[in-house]
Design a protein around this nucleic acid. Structure first.
Lengths: 214, 214, 214, 214
DNA sequence: AATGAATGAGCTTTCATTCAT
DNA sequence: TATGAATGAAAGCTCATTCAT
């Protein structure tokens, strides 16, 4: 049926479809963050999006499906961005450069999270157990972060710029730290009285030098 | 007949009541961890506990109530234990002592979590949005950890053993790190190839000295 | 087992049993009036009676059974009393005597209702549809009242002291009037500012002479 | 396609909605009369209406809500009708006119009750204690009847057409009589062998002249 | 006789999903 | 595509009744 339609219409339709889909996705993110996935009703989402109940099912197979797409889209974006900005760090030699590249990385990450806003909140609030595909996507994102961290630690150890340590444990620790801080700031909205840059610098200082004096 | 019942029986009866409650609590923890609170049915819990549906409601007002009690019990226990073991650190003077008291604290905490087992899994998996009382208890636990951490950081800064830093941010970072590691190990069961002692030592090394060489 | 017990004990037991039964009956009446049969729980009744849940079932087969016994007891009492006091009227000749015997009858009836108190409230609130036996008892009571009224009307017509009328309709009307007034006074507690005697006199005036002047 | 729908269809749709509600209301009345509110299940109502369980909750908030609406609708209708037909009586001067206006009023009332059929049965069977709003509506209806009756009695006394009497008590008695007769005829179906006109005349004779000869 | 913990059938209500229009 | 009324499976919770002590 759609095959016989002129291209112009087809494009218009697709665009309209994309808009609708995007609207629903945005509305869903908003509602899921506000009430949590389980307490959010499909009717809440369609009300927020200003469409009818049935329209939801033109774009998503099930209620879980919209969460999956939300998480997938967001995770893929973040993973993509991480891949881009994490390569800078890999070959730094001196401590100052290490500090700077780490700070730059965190600032990039935090800005990314800040812009994604609602979708990020959904990802960070860790809606687990809804669907194995979602669990996989969330695990994948965390795993990518851990891998980046671990790879950097090992490269640094090889080049002598980082002390000998258990890269697995420390990578997990670093990622846990970042997730927690990101959750506080981007989901709960607790800015802790600092800008993104200040936050990144403080965290990198902690990561590199620890808390001990000297 | 009932008049002549020895005290022992009476005690046994009371214990039976406590046992039932404990059995249901344990079964609920198990089921909540396995399926998540929302997907867990009361019928799952009673089946796991081997009692009838109605029996559940002799001990708990609602399905959310059992989660609340689980979380409350567990959080109170942990907070109590933390209060006890966190005081050692407060007045240490030299770096070696600082390291040791931190390691001891983490070992105590991890052992506590390991023993509480299922209830801890429930607490750590962060079942949020079910009940404001539950949210409050979980927030309280985290807040206590952050406060302990912050107080220690500030005491250490005052005595010169800890460098100047933003105690709020670093305390959050440390707690995020611990939560994440605890979640990995005690909920997901990823032991990362180390004992609790090794884990604690590695984390304290990271916390005190960071990752930078020298 | 009870056969081998000495008579004294047996009597004591029976009395105790009667007391318990009476206590439960009284408690049930109270609770049924306060909450209505359907909203009243067996647990409310036993709590009010100060006995354990299981004890209820030593004296009554089901929850409906206690209502049945309450209604039966009360209806039988009233019917018995009615039979006694209604015979006076039957053979009165002159108008003054008719008025007096009617007033006396109503006073007797109202006093009876006032004394039965709670049980009467149960009967008058017309708990219908719980059990066919209960429906039958309530219908029987009303039917007896209607029959008395009808017989008196017909006797009066025969003796010329009462005008020609449809004894069935008027008997129903009279009974409806009495039920309604009794309900207002003995269930809802609206005394309408008069004593039982005044009430009876006013009603008999209305019954005999109607409202028209002259 | 839907864009081109003629207005007629839109109306049809709205009517469908009204019809559904009316169907459910009718089915509920039927079921409530047959089994009583408490023993009637929502599943009985939807089965009687030929719709699915969930459909019930598209039109009514709860099971009690449908009873409330039934009672409210019916009571309001009756009160409205009463207001209209009760004014005729107010200023009648001679006995014959008084009798005729009273008969006319009762005939109007009985016809109204006969037409409302099932809903009236629900109202007259006095489903009490389900919801305070329902209790209020039923009390309001009775109160209106009593007030009308009382006002007429007092007007009649003032104009000398009605003898001196306690208008409160007599008004209650008259309303009790009417309720009882209406219940017998319109709920239980006992027609007592007379037409509505005959019934009204007999009752008015009784009301005006009482039972005494002469 | 008295207890009260345990039972489990059965109810109301919710809400994701469908489908005729 | 869009609609929204209708669906019905499923879940939480209640409470009359039982029974071992």
């Amino acid at each position: 049926m759609s095959v016989t339609k002129p291209t112009v219409n087809k494009t218009a339709e697709i665009d309209a479809g994309k808009d609708r889909r995007a609207e629903l996705l945005a509305a869903a993110a908003e509602v899921f963050v506000a009430k949590g996935f389980h307490d959010a009703k499909v009717s809440d989402v369609v009300t927020a999006a200003g469409v009818a109940q049935g329209t939801f099912y033109l774009y998503f197979k099930t209620k879980a499906d919209v969460l999956l797409q939300l998480v997938n889209d967001c995770c893929l974006d973040i993973i993509g961005a991480l891949a881009a900005c994490s390569q800078v760090k890999a070959d730094c030699r001196d401590p100052k450069q290490l500090r700077e590249s780490n700070v730059a990385f965190l600032i990039d990450l935090f800005n990314l999270l800040e812009n994604k806003h609602q979708a990020v909140k959904v990802v960070l609030s860790g809606q687990t157990g809804v669907d194995t595909a979602i669990d996989r996507a969330l695990a994948e994102l965390k795993s990518v972060l851990v891998e980046i961290s671990k790879a950097n630690l090992e490269a640094g150890m090889a080049s002598g710029i980082i002390r000998k340590l258990d890269s697995t444990i420390v990578a997990e620790a670093v990622v846990g730290m970042i997730y927690h801080i990101a959750f506080e700031r981007f989901v709960l909205g607790r800015r802790l009285g600092v800008s993104i840059r200040q936050l990144a610098e403080e965290l990198v200082d902690f990561e590199l030098d620890g808390i001990a004096a000297e």
